[in-house]
Design a protein around this nucleic acid. Structure first.
Length: 553
RNA sequence: UGGCCCAUGGUGUAACUGGCAACACGUUUGAUUUUGGUUCAAAAGAGUCCAGGUUCGAGCCCUGGUGGGCCAACCA
């Protein structure tokens, strides 16, 4: 039997008992930044629940704070969700679409004597709210008449009062141990343009007054959010108790633990800092744990949803291993990425027994995991580059690559024997003189020579060049936010990006398209970055290949 | 001196109305391999935070602790 997460258990019970007839979820981002991997999980959760139970999922922007929100974020968020492969029901929705209705809800509460306009200052309200361990004090404005409150709210709406001079509050319980029930603020005055409603409003609802009612208006059945909203649930329900039509679908808020990843952060506030303080090049910098960053890094969308699924959903605080995400990335790319050869740190190889105008095209498979992908022709000559790490002068016994007097297979080509090591004055190896073993051609090898290793190569006469950007973990400690006395930025990994300005790539790579993923044989998965130009290709390393040799050494 | 929530290998999740703690990642070992990749096979690693209780039987139920998270923006 397939195991269910706790939300699915709840849903299935409700479905069985008839408490709910269908499942309608929503993903409710605030357009004040880019989406990160934690949001990817929430998106996956909401949309897959909708799909699994044959319901639907809305995309609704929670845009109730004009000071923070911008339409460029709306666009970026839509792009990311679509890229992940999810389709929201109908058109994109906005909490701001419901401002008129929300305003009526506010009037309804006033008429029920459950809300009042408070003239107290911010500081006074804060002080009267008290602290969790002892009751707060009631506002002197708490007992205004319904008529006065209605009038005052209307005048707040029409712009008669200054920002901060008045708020609308719910009349609940100033002594509640739950701070959110101590007469929470419903509306505040903000005289600032809104990304969608422009100057139409100068009062804006608070999150608590907007979210649940928006869910209710849309007929959402399950309003899934993260744990920090757990304490808001009594308020969520209180509004519904007083405003919802009992004959209509009543949304239920369910909280789950947000996803965290080690060696990085998933807090919008800190991601914003990374961008604004210039620690990265933007929200879509490949080092960022944002969906856009991961896309640019070369992580496939399917790897992100696979990761979300494998991590699972529960209520306990958790920090997932980056290695699981990387596993998902490799898993997907292994099946889809074309294999090509690129030398990142070259050492020249001259094949002495081939003459200078020798040229040959050799067929090399595009992807052994997908035989139908066929092969391509790769030029071979007497001048090659191999990886510096594929040669060792004093090699240990288990070193399977090239060494003086040793042999190695050039992938898809010939076996070569290392005859001579050429060094410069400072002792650095600049060239290897090798000889090609007769009859050792790949696929028709009758030489009888046994090799332990196969290495990649490019023809120095035919190859192109490119820049490679190699990424490492963003932060150099596992839990960057753990030490609250220190600034997270202190823990940034100074080596989180290394740029190799010239790598040597096989000619076929000249036709790579931006966003196209490749496996650089024996190195890792790379994607062509959008910074590339027609005369300069730039590849991002999504993730290296697993390396059993490196691990042991 | 408050309230709400959580606690299962290193990590993340399972264990449906109590019934031999399972899966994945990671780690280690071996085999295969013209990628030290992939694939395949295997191993190590928790007795379920602690103490009581109920029960033939508790990771699951009850009580009390302990530890952790969240709550005092006119943010979401």
């Amino acid at each position: 039997m397939e195991s269910l997460n706790f939300i699915e258990h709840i849903i299935e019970e409700e479905l069985k008992s008839g408490k709910v007839k269908e499942v309608i979820t929503r993903f409710p981002p605030e357009p004040n930044g880019y989406l990160h991997i934690g949001h990817a999980q929430s998106i996956w959760l909401n949309f897959s629940l909708g799909k699994k139970y044959k319901g639907k999922t809305n995309l609704r922007f929670d845009d109730t704070n004009p000071l923070a929100e911008e339409s460029r974020f709306v666009e970026a968020i839509k792009r990311d969700i679509a890229w992940l492969g999810f389709e929201w029901e109908g058109s994109v929705l906005f909490a701001s679409d419901y401002f008129p209705q929300l305003y009526e809800f506010a009037q309804t509460l006033i008429k029920k004597d459950l809300a009042y306009v408070d003239d107290s200052t911010l500081e006074e309200i804060r002080r009267m709210r008290g602290v969790p361990t002892s009751p707060g004090d009631e506002s002197p404005f708490r007992n205004r008449s319904v008529e006065e409150n209605l009038d005052l709210l209307e005048r707040m709406k029409s712009g008669e009062f200054e920002e901060g001079s008045k708020v609308l509050r719910a009349k609940i319980d100033m002594s509640s141990p739950n701070m959110h029930l101590r007469d929470p603020i419903l509306y505040r005055i903000i005289k600032s343009g809104h990304h969608r409603t422009g100057e139409a409003w100068c009062i804006y609802p608070m999150y608590d007054f907007a979210h649940g009612q928006s869910d209710y208006i849309e007929g959402i059945t399950h309003s899934i959010c993260t744990l920090e909203f757990e304490i808001h649930r009594p308020l969520y329900d209180w509004f519904l108790d007083h405003l919802a039509d009992p004959s209509k679908v009543r949304p239920r808020q369910i909280e789950f633990a947000r996803l965290n990843l080690n060696y990085t952060i998933t807090s919008k506030r800190n991601l914003k800092r990374l961008v604004e303080e210039g620690h990265v090049d933007g929200w879509d910098d490949p080092r960022m744990p944002t969906i856009s960053g991961m896309r640019r890094r070369g992580y496939p969308a399917s790897a992100l949803t696979m990761f979300a699924e494998k991590v699972g959903v529960a209520k306990r605080e958790n920090v997932s291993d980056m290695s699981l995400l990387e596993f998902c990335v490799r898993e997907k790319l292994n099946k889809s990425a074309t294999r090509v050869m690129a030398v990142l740190d070259p050492i020249k190889v001259e094949i002495s027994n081939l003459d200078d105008n020798y040229a040959e095209e050799l067929p090399i498979e595009n992807n052994p995991e997908a035989p139908e992908s066929g092969s391509r022709m790769v030029p071979f000559s007497n001048q090659l580059y191999i990886e510096r790490s594929d040669f060792m002068e004093d090699a240990p016994k288990k070193y399977f690559r090239l060494k003086p007097g040793g042999v190695v297979r050039l992938k898809g080509a010939y076996i070569i024997h290392c005859d001579e090591v050429i060094k410069n004055e400072s002792g650095k190896i600049i060239k290897l003189k090798c000889s090609q073993i007769a009859n050792s051609k790949s696929g028709s090898d009758t030489s009888g020579v046994k090799v332990k290793g196969t290495i990649h190569w490019v023809s120095a006469k035919h190859c192109g060049t490119a820049e490679a950007r190699i990424y490492d973990r963003l932060f150099n400690i596992e839990y960057p936010l753990k030490d609250k006395d220190k600034d997270v930025m202190e823990f940034l990994n100074p080596d989180n990006l290394s740029i190799i300005d010239t790598i040597y790539i096989e000619p076929s790579l000249r036709f790579a398209k931006v966003g196209e993923s490749f496996q650089f044989l024996r190195k890792g998965y790379f994607v062509l970055d959008s910074d590339s130009t027609s005369d300069k290709l730039i590849f991002n390393q999504a993730v290296s290949l697993r390396d059993g040799w490196a691990k042991k050494n």
